[in-house]
């Protein structure tokens, strides 16, 4: 009754074929070569986006075919997405500050004038 490899536990045992692991591995190697190759071509800002895109594809491959997130149950999938979601919140809301700092800098020259209008100290 306590043997994990019985039929009744088939939904927690997930062993894909060796071939699928190898295929995934070579796909990852291919992407590694592509990412190095792309980095050697100057595309300006696109270089970073390309590198991140490839890294994300690699991550999806690892998560789906090595970590079997697809078979890990709904709860694990929700949590994995939760992690990414809050990570993006952290970056995104930080960027609302950093991407708009320059707007403050352009409006600042008015401030000394306002200071000059203050009545002299008694």
């Amino acid at each position: 009754m306590t043997n994990l490899h019985d039929e009744e536990h088939s939904d927690v045992v997930h062993a894909a074929s060796v071939g699928s692991y190898l295929a995934n591995y070579f796909a990852l190697l291919g992407l590694l070569i592509i990412t190095v190759a792309v980095a050697r071509v100057d595309l300006g800002i696109l270089n970073m986006y390309a590198a991140m895109l490839i890294a994300m594809v690699k991550t999806v491959l690892v998560v789906l075919f090595f970590m079997h997130l697809g078979k890990a149950g709904r709860l694990s999938r929700i949590w994995a997405l939760t992690g990414i979601f809050f990570f993006l919140i952290m970056i995104g809301l930080n960027l609302t500050d950093y991407s708009s700092r320059h707007m403050d800098a352009t409006s600042s020259p008015t401030q000394p004038q306002r200071g000059g209008e203050q009545p002299p100290a008694e």
């Binding site: 809050f86 919140i89 809301l93 609302t96 500050d97 708009s100 700092r101 403050d104 409006s107």
Partner: peptide, 18 residues
């Protein structure tokens, strides 16, 4: 609660827009 944190920074250099 996760998306309100920068109200602690209102006077410490946070951009106006943010």
């Amino acid at each position: 609660g996760f998306i309100v944190w920068a109200h602690h920074l209102f006077t410490s250099g946070l951009s106006t827009y943010s």
